[in-house]
């Protein structure tokens, strides 16, 4: 397990935890961050996804809960919010709620371009900007490698013009890893997004080492394989090693497994519950497992 000093040297521990939402007298815990290799910008290791959970349209009750989720996210020092035009109303919901929050410092706005037409890409990106209410995205990604050649050209031009902070490509569910590897070798990517969790570890074989070698930041999606991994784990008591890495729940342990891989920059769990967001954000603090403990965690989980 990494000790505190190792941890501080390997990760940038930022004390810029938003105090909003913390109870009076609470002590700000440094949030674990990792640097984006191409820009050096530090990113909190726990971000959030919006697939399904933020596609709630104009339902007032559901919007109120999402506002609280975002509040808990920023209060916990969250950074990356990842969405896509494919996610229905999720971008519009973010655009509606973000301006209402008192605290959005640290927001790293990430969305995707998702259209078969290269020509339609810029139009879709402009619409996403309008929906989010942001002047520019920190990260634009080609969703599931759809028309990736055309869209990457657009994104490269936008990055050169300063119209987007970073660019990347995404895949999920362990699909199209060979295509992704080819793109990672050939293209000047800032980010890749792929599925990585304690049960889906194919990316460890080639993609994660390649990301380290090429200096590409990695966003890990599906850290809980939706809820499946938590459902598997929760009936079982937490093993003793959980306390060593400051985890009180299986969800935190599963997240720490993901973000402790040296190549992974951040994980983006999605939730529709405020309590779960607080639980997720707690995984962005404290020690991370080292390589030996990671092996033990994977072995213990496989035995459940």
């Amino acid at each position: 397990m990494l000790n505190r000093r190792d941890f501080v040297t390997q990760l940038t521990a930022t004390a810029a935890v938003a105090l909003a939402g913390l109870p009076l007298g609470a002590t700000a815990v440094p949030v674990l961050t990792k640097a984006i290799p191409t820009s050096g910008e530090p990113l909190p290791v726990i971000g959030m996804g919006t697939w399904i959970t933020f596609n709630v349209g104009t339902n007032a009750a559901a919007l109120a809960v999402r506002a609280q989720i975002l509040q808990a996210f920023f209060a916990g020092g969250g950074g990356v919010i990842d969405s896509s035009p494919m996610y229905g109303s999720a971008e519009a919901v973010l655009g509606r709620l973000l301006p209402r929050l008192e605290e959005t410092q640290g927001l790293f706005a990430a969305t995707k371009v998702w259209t078969r037409s290269g020509l339609a890409g810029p139009i879709e990106i402009a619409e996403s900007r309008r929906l989010w209410g942001v002047e520019r995205f920190d990260l634009l990604q080609v969703h599931n490698l759809l028309a990736w050649q055309e869209h990457l050209e657009t994104l490269k031009q936008m990055r050169a013009a300063g119209e987007v902070g970073h660019l990347g490509v995404t895949t999920s569910h362990g699909r199209r890893h060979r295509d992704l590897e080819r793109i990672m070798r050939k293209e000047p990517l800032d980010f890749v997004q792929l599925t990585y969790n304690i049960a889906d570890r194919q990316a460890e074989e080639r993609l994660l080492p390649l990301a380290e070698e090429r200096g590409i930041a990695v966003i890990a999606n599906r850290p809980f394989r939706r809820k499946e991994l938590i459902r598997i784990a929760e009936p079982h008591p937490l093993p003793g090693w959980a306390a060593e890495i400051g985890c009180r729940t299986w969800a935190q342990a599963l997240l720490k497994f993901v973000v402790s891989h040296p190549a992974v920059t951040c994980a983006i769990p999605a939730t529709s519950q405020v309590a779960h967001m607080r639980e997720n954000m707690a995984a962005a603090a404290g020690p991370l497992p080292d390589a030996a403990l990671r092996q033990r965690m994977a072995k213990d989980f496989a035995a459940l």
Binding site: I52, N55, V56, N59, A61, A62, Y87
Partner: peptide, 13 residues
Amino acid sequence: PLSRETYQGLFAL
């Protein structure tokens, strides 16, 4: 891209 709760809530709205 939506949950059962959201789909059912749509009908109420």
